[in-house]
């Protein structure tokens, strides 16, 4: 019996945005996210910036992607104390 063929496809920018927006929705309401000189934002404001795709929105996407990649690699369950020492 022939196995089912799986193909990998590029995830589009729109799909990534959608994923990040969904993840940002899990942020607590009533709290603010301070992002240095950019200011402090509610989750609704961050979602708006991700949808807009401006500099801050792109940074938020980078934060999420980096976190998800670390989760995928299981980095949180490794020896973090030695994994992120960078000089």
């Amino acid at each position: 019996m022939r196995g089912k063929k799986f193909t990998t496809t590029e995830v589009s920018e729109a799909e990534i945005k959608k994923l990040v927006v969904e993840r940002l929705k899990t942020l607590p309401s009533g709290k603010q996210i301070s992002i240095g000189g950019e200011g402090s934002f509610t989750k609704e404001e961050l979602i708006k910036r991700v949808k807009l795709g401006d500099k801050l929105g792109k940074k938020m996407i980078a934060v999420e992607i980096e976190f998800l990649r670390a989760l995928k690699k299981g980095e949180f369950f490794n020896d973090q104390e030695s994994s992120y020492h960078q000089t």
């Binding site: 607590p28 009533g30 709290k31 603010q32 992002i35 240095g36 950019e38 402090s40």
Partner: peptide, 8 residues
Amino acid sequence: PFIFILEP
């Protein structure tokens, strides 16, 4: 950016 969450 150094990011942190705060309670207003």
